[in-house]
Simulated scan of single mutants.
Amino acid sequence: MIKDIINNAESKMKKTVSVLTSDLSTMKAGRANPTMLDRIFVDYYGSQCQLSQVANISAPEARMLVITPWEKPLLKEIEKAILKSDLGINPSSDGSVIRLLVPELTEETRKKLVKNVKSVGEEAKIAIRSIRRDANEKIKALKKDGHLSDDEVKKAEEGVQKKTDLFVKEIDGIIVAKEKEIMSI
């Protein structure tokens, strides 16, 4: 029972770290990265589709993305979706492909991005601590029902805390790495 609770908590913590990594990869950091466009959805014959599902996205240069729609009529829809997004990049089209030039980051923009990265990281840590709290509550409920002794509860809570510390440390490392990436571009 205790192992299941700890394994379940660990699995949720891994998922939290995975979501954090995914979220950080979509933040623009001065380099062209196709994952920047993961949050952009295009109107495709009445339904919303992710941009990567209706076009090929490549980064031929460090600061340029090239979007080649699989169907020419989608060109205008893709441009509209990019303009509506929070990217802050103006698309330029030549009738067959769309080019996005990722602007160089100013010092002020870098600082804002780092602040945003720290905020996203803190949200992930809060999620990890929430998972810990839920696991500890389940452990205490088992004790209350008479399934565990005080020593077993203490040992189980220590196990959950070790997992929590491990994942918080991993999140800190991810945040520091992203900050260095942003500030060194």
Rank of each mutant, 00 (worst) to 15 (best):
I78K: 04
A55P: 00
R110P: 01
A177V: 10
R39P: 01
R39E: 15
K180T: 15
V42I: 15
S52I: 12
N56T: 14
M13W: 05
K111P: 01
A124R: 00
E108Y: 06
I5V: 13
L142I: 15
I57M: 03
M13K: 01
A177T: 11
Q48W: 12
K118D: 11
I67P: 00
V153D: 03
A127W: 06
L148Q: 03
D151W: 11
P91W: 15
D165L: 03
I174G: 01
N33L: 12
K76T: 10
K162C: 00
S96I: 10
L24V: 09
K125Q: 04
D23I: 07
K163R: 09
D86V: 08
V117E: 03
L142T: 09
P73D: 10
I175V: 14
M36D: 04
N33I: 13
A127E: 07
S130C: 03
E170D: 09
E157H: 06
K28P: 00
D86F: 07
D4S: 11
F41T: 13
A124M: 00
G173E: 09
E158S: 13
D43V: 08
L37H: 01
G121D: 03
E137Y: 04
R132G: 00
P91I: 14
I89K: 04
I131G: 04
S92D: 08
K76D: 11
A9G: 01
K144F: 06
S119W: 08
L148N: 09
I171F: 01
K72V: 07
S184F: 07
I131L: 11
S25Y: 09
S47P: 00
K14G: 05
E157Q: 14
K178L: 05
I89W: 02
L142E: 09
D86R: 08
V114C: 05
V102D: 04
D4H: 15
S119P: 00
A124K: 00
A127M: 12
L113R: 05
I139F: 06
R63A: 13
